[in-house]
Design a protein around this nucleic acid. Sequence first.
DNA 1: AATATTATTTAGACAAATCTAAATAATAAA
DNA 2: TTTATTATTTAGATTTGTCTAAATAATATT
Lengths: 219, 219
Amino acid sequence: MNLSIAEENYVKSIYKLQEGDAVVTTNALAYELETKPASVTDMAKKLKEKKLIDYEKYKGITLSSEGRRVALQIIRRHRLWECFLVDKLAFSWEEIHELAEELEHVRSEKLISRLSDYLGNPVIDPHGDPIPDAHGKMAKPRPQTSLDQANARRLVVTAVTDQSTALLAFLNAKNIKLGTQLEVIAHYEYDNSIEIKLKQHPAITISEQVARNIMVRPV
Amino acid sequence: MNLSIAEENYVKSIYKLQEGDAVVTTNALAYELETKPASVTDMAKKLKEKKLIDYEKYKGITLSSEGRRVALQIIRRHRLWECFLVDKLAFSWEEIHELAEELEHVRSEKLISRLSDYLGNPVIDPHGDPIPDAHGKMAKPRPQTSLDQANARRLVVTAVTDQSTALLAFLNAKNIKLGTQLEVIAHYEYDNSIEIKLKQHPAITISEQVARNIMVRPV
DNA sequence: AATATTATTTAGACAAATCTAAATAATAAA
DNA sequence: TTTATTATTTAGATTTGTCTAAATAATATT
Ligand SMILES: [Mn+2]
Ligand SMILES: [Mn+2]
Ligand SMILES: [Mn+2]
Ligand SMILES: [Mn+2]
């Protein structure tokens, strides 16, 4: 089945919003793809026709098993290109998402398997997200929680859930990256901000919004 | 100016067919792009509107200076990706053209300049074609002739003009690649075929059609 | 110079992807 | 359980890139 770039982007976004088994709503998908609900309805009909999604009027969207397979391939391509950009071309993690958003649409099994080999078959991307293998199998992510809900005091950063340039640039400025170890000093109840300390750096206070998007596990 | 993939492909093909200063005809461009003359006429109007080409009804097409600039950027991207595929991912020269045809449309100055650095700023691609630099400057190709017109006896292969998978696969089978040294044994007048000999290989006879597409210079 | 052939353009249509505005369905509030 | 609000879909339009068939222009042939 030959999918257009638009169709691939829809499938990928549906996968992302599904998070397991939840039904994806028209509005949520429109927001995610920065398009209009009417456009989503149009595309939903096409993707249903192609048997990539299950969809009934007013009932929301879920991926079919074929749709899931396709989504995982696209995600694989996306994340491998991200690894390439960071590991080989020395891009930083906030610059790569947009580029990978385009590179992911070059469809060639051979290209991607060679790229993966070339990169040493990585299993996580520069944002800490797992990379599906050629069969769509992903390493189950190690148990992790968002920083605002972590109990332990000594933590290591494992991923970021929001990959906006703005957040990643903020984290760069504060020297926080994947693998960074930090210690929670205090929770401030007033605004749910959190004071943390990185080795060799003075303590800083980060907002709840930032903390929610940093995934951590006990060191 | 933001060009679509289709527009980029047109500009690149016009550049290729122009070969210096010749006017490009509607039919030639349609054939090159595997489309119909009517479609070319439609697109010519759009590219003229965008000031990328000079075009008057029935008078053919030439690139404007802006069009030339754009074409050289696309060619740069195409050839750098070809280098990447061969040098880093171990593709062979007949597989890379199609992939580069897609990769060339990822527009990012930064990506391409980093890629170029990463590859050691190569000046020729795996087919022997020169790679424009960031300003569109290309190394003037060293004087070369097609194998069927070469006078010298000892020659070295510098480029191939036809990059079809079929020709490149044929050359692979005969162990002919860029830099291969060969000796012309005989010209056969009957069908203009040429007998050549590679070091450590028995002599072989190649057709005029093949010889026309192999570029060489005296060793 | 008239006629035939070839090249190019136009007219009109279509598919993909999108949009706005209006209609309808689902859900929440009164 | 009506009524209001929100979510979703439909109707109809637009843009981009393409096509076929017909018309016209340019060129070649007689
Ligand atoms: Mn994308
Ligand atoms: Mn990522
Ligand atoms: Mn292309
Ligand atoms: Mn090439």
